[in-house]
Computed example of a mutant assay.
Amino acid sequence: MHRIAYLAAIAYTVISVLYVILFSSGNNPSVYILLLFFGLQFFAVGFLFGNLRAIAMQPLGHIAGIGAAINGSISTVMAVPITNYIGSFVSDSVLPLFIGFSIFGVLSLLVFMVLKRDAKLARV
């Protein structure tokens, strides 16, 4: 689960950064190109969220229902203000959306790296 989530986070970040690099001039791509990028992005999100939820639920097997409810509510409470802020910049281009994807993709990769480093230190 950890490896799949890490690879999905890399894909998520690379796809969004690639979009930002290609279309940072402000010109909107065709709707087919946009749908391609969204499709790739949400494919990565499917692997990322599914595995991260499973990792979060791993120690809560004995209280899975309550754990899933708490996990879902906390992630929603965190996501709503972030999406409202990023969404406020979207007017006639989706570039701000992909910039937000890029920023939080890089942050998630940093979290993965810190957790991997801490796991290696705990084994020593």
Results as ranks from 00 to 15, higher is better:
residue 109 L to M: 10
residue 49 F to H: 15
residue 78 M to H: 06
residue 10 I to M: 05
residue 121 L to G: 07
residue 97 L to Q: 05
residue 17 V to R: 01
residue 35 L to M: 08
residue 67 G to T: 02
residue 8 A to C: 06
residue 107 L to V: 00
residue 2 H to F: 07
residue 86 I to V: 12
residue 1 M to W: 03
residue 45 V to S: 14
residue 91 S to P: 08
residue 92 D to S: 08
residue 1 M to R: 14
residue 124 V to M: 14
residue 111 V to S: 12
residue 59 P to Q: 02
residue 62 H to W: 00
residue 7 L to N: 15
residue 57 M to D: 09
residue 116 K to E: 07
residue 75 S to L: 05
residue 97 L to N: 05
residue 23 F to C: 08
residue 109 L to I: 05
residue 124 V to W: 14
residue 48 L to V: 14
residue 108 S to A: 12
residue 120 K to R: 10
residue 117 R to G: 09
residue 49 F to V: 15
residue 56 A to P: 08
residue 86 I to K: 04
residue 89 F to K: 02
residue 20 V to M: 01
residue 53 R to K: 13
residue 110 L to Q: 05
residue 4 I to T: 15
residue 111 V to C: 08
residue 82 I to P: 09
residue 39 G to W: 00
residue 19 Y to G: 01
residue 16 S to T: 02
residue 48 L to Y: 09
residue 105 G to L: 04
residue 124 V to P: 09
residue 108 S to M: 11
residue 122 A to E: 13
residue 12 Y to W: 15
residue 76 T to K: 14
residue 83 T to S: 04
residue 109 L to R: 12
residue 74 I to Y: 09
residue 80 V to G: 08
residue 1 M to E: 11
residue 15 I to P: 05
residue 88 S to P: 06
residue 47 F to C: 09
residue 107 L to Q: 06
residue 123 R to H: 14
residue 77 V to A: 15
residue 68 A to R: 05
residue 123 R to M: 12
residue 23 F to E: 06
residue 99 I to K: 03
residue 39 G to M: 00
residue 108 S to G: 13
residue 75 S to V: 04
residue 76 T to A: 14
residue 49 F to K: 13
residue 78 M to Y: 06
residue 100 G to I: 00
residue 118 D to R: 12
residue 64 A to L: 03
residue 108 S to V: 02
residue 25 S to T: 03
residue 26 G to A: 01
residue 41 Q to A: 09
residue 61 G to H: 01
residue 63 I to L: 11
residue 12 Y to L: 15
residue 72 G to M: 06
residue 65 G to F: 00
residue 64 A to K: 06
residue 51 N to A: 10
residue 94 V to P: 07
residue 23 F to W: 10
residue 55 I to W: 00
